[in-house]
């Protein structure tokens, strides 16, 4: 598509009913805007392409060669290695399982809390919100030894429950903070009307508030999903059996005492990004769709 054609096309969709006349200056403005947006897009998508190339290289090519360079002889074997030596088959399933459970628990629990704090009236609400916020402020590595002791005394070491609970606990503060920011912008009128109509509080929460927050819920689901999917410190520390470990451990299996197999790491990373990418694309649309759905119900 030629540049001029592109501009006219943009122009037609951009024209809003109230202001139909577009000046020449405006057109140039949009042209410049799209060039900038395009450059940013290239910068943002480059890492994925880089990772793909990286995953097909040998160790020698990864180091010392230009990162722009194409693999001389694509090493598809890296993927085979990632699959067998990296135990991806088992790890992959665990990753999905822990991520899904933790995300669902976090988002539901955080919604409950945020609803109670921002919508309901009670004296300690500010304090409790503060407690959750402060929970975001502890550096992860300070918590490892205490957490290990907690799980040891509750016999949860080498039990995936320890990892899932940690994910939920450590993501609750940030999830609640994001949700609270949004709840404050939501209109209260609908809920108030529902109270007048004699709706039960649970119905208000599940049938009115929750649907209204689908856009932000999708956002927090995406963020939680990415965090949990890429996490490995907890997995390494609290789990020891191979059957419980996750895909990030698979990545680390290629880091060695004296030799690190970077190509295989690239391949594992590439395999591991596909499900998040798909989930992200699907959820990303919910951010927009949700609003329509919410307003219909409202």
């Amino acid at each position: 598509m030629s540049k001029a054609a592109m501009e006219t096309k943009i122009n037609t969709t951009l024209s809003v009913p109230y202001k139909t006349s577009k000046s020449f200056g405006n057109r140039i403005g949009y042209g410049v805007l799209y060039v900038i947006l395009g450059i940013i897009a290239i910068i943002q998508i480059y890492p994925l392409i880089w990772l793909l190339l990286f995953s097909l290289k040998t160790n020698q090519e990864v180091f010392g060669m230009s990162p722009f360079s194409l693999p001389q002889n694509p090493q598809w074997g890296n993927y085979a290695k990632a699959w067998s030596a990296g135990h991806i088959d088992v790890y992959f399933f665990n990753s999905v399982l822990y991520t899904v459970i933790a995300v669902v628990l976090t988002v539901i629990l955080a919604s409950f809390v945020t609803f109670a704090i921002t919508r309901m009236h009670w004296k300690l609400s500010g304090l409790v919100l503060g407690l959750f916020m402060a929970g975001y402020m502890i550096p992860l590595h300070s918590t490892l030894i205490p957490l290990f002791n907690i799980f040891k005394s509750t016999h949860l070491i080498d039990n995936p429950v320890s990892v899932i609970l940690s994910y939920v606990a450590f993501n609750l503060p940030i999830t609640i903070m994001i949700l609270a920011g949004f709840y404050k912008t939501l209109p209260r009128e609908i809920e108030e009307a529902a109270v007048m109509d004699g709706c039960s509080i649970h119905r208000i929460f599940f049938q009115i508030t929750l649907p209204m927050t689908i856009p932000v819920l999708s956002t927090t689901v995406i963020i939680n999903m990415i965090y949990n999917w890429n996490e490995f410190v907890f997995v390494n520390t609290f789990l020891s059996s191979d059957k419980w470990k996750t895909i990030t451990v698979g990545v680390n299996n290629f880091v060695g005492q004296y030799l690190t197999d970077w190509g295989a790491i690239g391949a594992t990373l590439m395999i591991s990004i596909i499900p998040v990418l798909i989930a992200y694309f699907i959820l990303s649309d919910r951010i927009v769709e949700g609003i329509a759905a919410g307003s219909v119900k409202g």
Partner: peptide, 25 residues
């Protein structure tokens, strides 16, 4: 909107979790 039982029900599970796993550490 100020039903203490409901507030407790909504807040407590998450609160217990962070008290145990974040505040104890």
């Amino acid at each position: 909107m100020s039903n203490k039982f409901v507030i407790t029900l909504y807040v407590l599970p998450a609160l217990i979790l962070i008290l145990l796993l974040i505040y104890i550490p």
